[in-house]
Computed example of a mutant assay.
Amino acid sequence: MGRLMMLLWVLVAVVVVLLGYIRLAPSDPVVWHAMPEGISEDRDRSNGVVRVIEAGPDTLSRLDAIILSTPRTKPLAGTVEEGMVTYVTRSAVMGFPDYTTVRREGDSLVIHGRARFGRSDLGVNRERVEGWIDALQAG
């Protein structure tokens, strides 16, 4: 019984450390405030999504307001004025960070959402990005 309790406490400690790392790991703008080169069309990836939409002069600022109204979402780097902004959105329970970079390219916006941890985001980024696009088009 003593060994089982010790194993249980070690397991709990490992889980707490992992959750702490997920919540507290720094988000380096040099790493995450970037856009893949050569993207000109929509792409679904296992841990993220890319969407390209037509944009008018105020589309980025309108999308920025929509994104910032999303719960647990904060800007990481860039500004609307610079033409590229990266946001961090954390999951409600576990605090997993997802990064979304939006860049203005001529008459288009390229939106790249991706998960930091894991090989699959289970479609979370696609759903979030498409929700933002729907809200943008509705407004």
Rank of each mutant, 00 (worst) to 15 (best):
11 L>C: 14
23 R>A: 15
4 L>H: 05
139 G>N: 08
56 G>Y: 08
105 E>W: 03
110 V>M: 01
131 G>K: 10
111 I>W: 05
60 L>K: 09
43 R>A: 15
38 G>S: 14
60 L>H: 08
109 L>K: 04
35 M>P: 01
74 K>W: 07
70 T>F: 02
38 G>A: 14
72 R>T: 00
68 L>I: 00
23 R>I: 07
121 D>V: 06
70 T>L: 06
122 L>A: 12
114 R>P: 06
59 T>E: 02
14 V>G: 07
40 S>F: 10
104 R>I: 00
53 I>M: 02
57 P>Y: 10
135 A>Q: 11
37 E>S: 09
121 D>C: 06
21 Y>P: 01
90 R>G: 02
47 N>H: 13
53 I>R: 06
103 R>C: 02
92 A>I: 09
48 G>I: 03
55 A>V: 04
127 E>D: 13
101 T>N: 00
54 E>I: 02
124 V>N: 07
67 I>Y: 01
57 P>F: 10
74 K>T: 12
120 S>F: 07
58 D>W: 05
46 S>D: 13
20 G>Q: 10
14 V>Y: 03
35 M>V: 05
74 K>L: 09
28 D>H: 07
28 D>T: 09
1 M>R: 05
11 L>E: 04
88 V>C: 12
109 L>W: 01
125 N>Y: 10
126 R>P: 02
99 Y>S: 03
62 R>E: 15
50 V>F: 09
77 A>W: 03
65 A>D: 13
58 D>M: 11
44 D>C: 06
7 L>E: 03
66 I>Y: 12
87 Y>E: 07
43 R>T: 08
99 Y>D: 06
29 P>Y: 12
34 A>C: 04
110 V>S: 05
100 T>L: 12
73 T>D: 07
10 V>H: 08
82 E>K: 00
75 P>S: 14
116 R>P: 00
50 V>G: 00
135 A>G: 01
33 H>S: 08
71 P>M: 09
19 L>S: 12
24 L>K: 09
68 L>Y: 02
130 E>I: 01
66 I>C: 14
117 F>C: 10
11 L>D: 06
79 T>K: 15
58 D>I: 07
127 E>N: 09
5 M>T: 08
76 L>S: 12
81 E>Y: 11
137 Q>A: 08
38 G>R: 15
67 I>M: 11
117 F>E: 10
129 V>G: 06
66 I>W: 11
37 E>F: 03
70 T>K: 05
88 V>N: 11
14 V>S: 10
102 V>K: 00
39 I>L: 15
79 T>V: 00
107 D>V: 09
27 S>N: 11
108 S>H: 15
95 G>F: 09
27 S>Q: 14
118 G>C: 04
137 Q>H: 15
68 L>H: 01
10 V>W: 09
98 D>F: 13
122 L>P: 02
12 V>C: 08
69 S>E: 13
116 R>Y: 05
17 V>K: 04
129 V>T: 10
123 G>S: 03
11 L>T: 13
133 I>D: 05
53 I>G: 06
97 P>L: 01
61 S>Q: 12
51 R>D: 02
34 A>H: 12
35 M>K: 05
109 L>E: 01
111 I>Q: 02
48 G>D: 12
103 R>E: 13
124 V>K: 13
